[in-house]
Design a protein around this nucleic acid. Structure first.
Lengths: 222, 222
DNA sequence: TAGATTGTTAATCGATTAACAATC
DNA sequence: TAGATTGTTAATCGATTAACAATC
């Protein structure tokens, strides 16, 4: 019951964030199944490969408006194309990486990015010793060039791999340059305006959380 | 009301995972405040620096059994020590990294690890061309040495930075060797037995989630 | 048709936010 | 004491799980 609709249950804009965060996993599972030559799969099989429960997968897909066939399952290739369209992966995304230290350099070469439709089009660093060097086939440019680079290369996504101290400043610049999504590895909370999407990965925190569970000897039984 | 207790509200074991995942952020905020010479801070200030709401911070701390002073706030140094004890950071944690490609190498050198009490004590790779090379002052050892390395070095935590295909096998070996926490960067869901803690970071998925929001033009207003 | 599996509604669970009495 | 701020309870919200009628 959504009152608004004339009939075409669109769902757009109302997809829960938890659902969205599982879509890349579903996509990967579908790719795996396709590679195995599987044409049709019931929710149980798909969920197993994706590492979730069948009910959750069905619920997520129904929230998206994707459909399977009762008594049969889901069309693997069809669903994959549908999810790719939902995630906007039909268009190539252009990425700028700011901070070309060990981590930034590793990310520039990370094969998982091109594999999933992301092209690194620019590298930026504040250190004069790093500027002018090459990484992953790209010339590292100075911080002053950030704005021009984002615009010229039409980058819509950026990765922040700088020290924490400068991360907010870099973030502000990226937003001003028109970037719409930011993935930050800086161990510090960042502020972005509404309309810009920020995701943060804090590697040190991840280890500390593991330490907590270790420390408290989780689980008694097997 | 927990029925069990005689009086000493211990809370141990019943801390929500959402709360635990925020503790490293609180710890960072406290370190920042201490560096600024702040001795006492109310929840509003602490929460602001940590990037959360004051009510949530107070709730989290109360679930942990940490206490502030009404009308005054929290003792920065004291709370920090308390959280470090809760997270088990009083003891140094020893980490093995499996997979010494670009990402593994970057993680081996990542300053955020030693900064937070983690020491990388071993590097392992399956590629004969990589074995025997040095990274971050450590010799890369072959996969066969994994078990002995974990035991000899008393590593309790491991990082998986291998290709997806071998990740589950590496994971199984790590578990057998006695590792209690695993941080995986492999783009594939992994299975671990109860009692072992697994956290997974999938860099490609993070970008795809950003792409979704970009694609669907989030937020209308400012 | 009979069997299988979806799509959806309802029930449960967990986490966040709000409100305020306790108390420093 | 008066003012400020905690600690906790209650209300809300969102997400997961269960159950099952619809239907291929």
């Amino acid at each position: 019951m959504d009152g608004t609709g004339a009939g075409r249950a669109r769902t757009k804009g109302s997809v829960p964030t938890a659902t969205i965060s599982r879509l890349p996993g579903y996509l990967r599972a579908l790719a795996t199944l396709m590679a195995r030559g599987v044409v049709t799969a019931p929710s149980g099989v798909l969920a197993e490969v994706a590492g979730v429960r069948p009910e959750q997968l069905r619920k997520d897909l129904s929230l998206l408006g994707a459909h399977g066939r009762r008594g049969v399952g889901y069309d693997v290739a069809g669903l994959r194309a549908e999810l790719e369209a939902t995630l906007g992966l039909t268009r190539e995304r252009r990425v700028v990486i700011v901070g070309v230290g060990n981590l930034g350099r590793a990310l520039a070469r990370y094969p998982g990015f091109p594999d999933r439709g992301f092209v690194v089009v620019g590298l930026v660093d504040a250190d004069p010793a790093v500027v002018g060097t090459r990484a992953a086939g790209l010339l590292v440019e100075p911080l002053e060039r950030l704005d021009a680079l984002v615009r010229d290369q039409e980058a819509t996504v950026a990765v922040i791999a700088t020290p924490a101290e400068v991360a907010q400043d870099v973030c502000d610049r990226l937003v001003r340059a028109g970037v719409r999504g930011i993935l930050s590895f800086a161990p510090r909370p960042l502020q972005v305006p509404v309309g810009v999407d920020l995701r943060a990965v804090d590697l040190g925190s991840e280890l500390q959380i593991l330490a907590f569970h270790d420390h408290h000897r989780s689980g008694g039984g097997r």
